[in-house]
């Protein structure tokens, strides 16, 4: 049973196509990740699915409800933990939660129970009556997460849930997110530009670039689709025939030159590496650097978008916005 289904979902802002004919489904109880650089269209997609924006073209349903025509009903079953920190600094954690429960029409006595439950889930019970002003960035994010849970949403949207958090806090957040799915059976749709986050958390990942989904599968399948390991080798300029010889070796699948290095795709890296080096020495080619790269989502990303995530970070002129966000996260 799918909970989210999009059909050629598209959003244009003027001449910019932020989301370009995106179609996918998310299964019930799944943690589904949108992985891509800033400006790839992740937040725009979330905004359409949570009824903040209307699609320019195409359609989407959440819980079987059309996000455009039945937006009021969609709002009742979705929760959004936005990228920006929106909890109110001037109020206490408790007051923030109470306000949220009012906005979702949770009766007061029920709200009290649920707040207690949500606050303990995110580990904020002790800080509940302190002003949010005194919270650390991680605590704010966790409060934001707790707010998203107050009405027991069917689908929880997490927009960059760990952006700006330090490594330890990030791991703690992952744990909370997993527990939400495991213990409360909430379907989770998250966006991230952290590879390891997508890898650790998500059941399935869609890699999105320039508004288009370029790959969609489980992290493992995506990694397998690379077809094995990559040996990165720097050696003297080789002639074409020498490269051809390399390519004919049994375990070698492909040889590409990227920059100074040769990228040799092989099925079993550990075994292939000594043989390749032996061969190169026979051809009297001096070897500079050697490294063996096991398949990772980074690799997958490179394969599908032709760029590494590191290169694309911040290229969309969002740096200022991001810095402002960081300042706010860190308080």
């Amino acid at each position: 049973m799918y909970v989210i289904k999009t059909d050629k979902l598209t959003k244009r802002f003027g001449s910019l196509v932020a989301v370009d004919h995106v179609s996918f489904t998310v299964e019930e109880g799944e943690i589904f990740g949108f992985l891509g650089p800033n400006g790839a269209g992740k937040t725009t997609t979330i905004n359409m699915l949570t009824t903040l924006l209307n699609p320019t073209e195409g359609s989407a349903t959440v819980g079987g409800l059309d996000v455009e025509k039945q937006d009021g009903k969609v709002r009742k079953i979705v929760g959004l933990v936005p990228q920006d920190i929106t909890v109110d600094d001037d109020l206490t954690g408790m007051e923030n939660m109470m306000l949220q429960s009012r906005l979702y029409h949770v009766p007061k006595d029920v709200a009290r129970e649920r707040i207690k439950e949500a606050m303990s889930l995110v580990g904020l019970t002790d800080a509940a009556n302190r002003r949010v002003e005194t919270y650390s960035g991680g605590m704010r994010k966790r409060l934001e997460l707790a707010e998203g849970l107050i009405h027991y949403p069917k689908v929880l949207f997490l927009d960059e849930p760990t952006l700006g958090l330090d490594v330890q806090t990030r791991v703690v957040m992952w744990d909370y997110i997993k527990r939400l799915r495991d213990e409360h059976k909430i379907t989770i749709f998250l966006t991230t530009h952290y590879m390891e986050e997508a890898d650790v958390l998500c059941d399935r990942i869609a890699i999105i670039d320039h508004g288009k989904i370029v790959a969609l599968d489980t992290p493992q399948n995506l990694k397998d689709s690379l077809g094995g390991d990559v040996i990165e080798l720097e050696f003297d300029e080789a002639t074409d025939s020498q490269i051809e010889t390399l390519k004919t070796m049994p375990m070698v699948k492909d040889v590409k030159k990227i920059g100074e290095a040769y990228m040799i795709k092989v099925s079993k890296g550990e075994k292939a590496l000594p043989e390749i080096m032996e061969n190169l020495l026979k051809m009297k080619l001096r070897i500079g650097k050697v490294s063996l790269v096991k398949p990772s989502l980074d690799q997958v990303y490179l394969e599908y978008t032709g760029r590494s995530l590191r290169e694309t970070r911040g290229e969309t002129g969002e740096i200022w916005r991001r810095m402002r966000h960081m300042r706010r996260v860190r308080g």
Binding site: G72, R75, P82, R328
Partner: peptide, 13 residues
């Protein structure tokens, strides 16, 4: 600017 408005707009109010 701080996204609070979006939070209200997502809520069923």
């Amino acid at each position: 600017r701080f996204g609070f408005l979006n939070k209200l707009l997502v809520a069923p109010i």
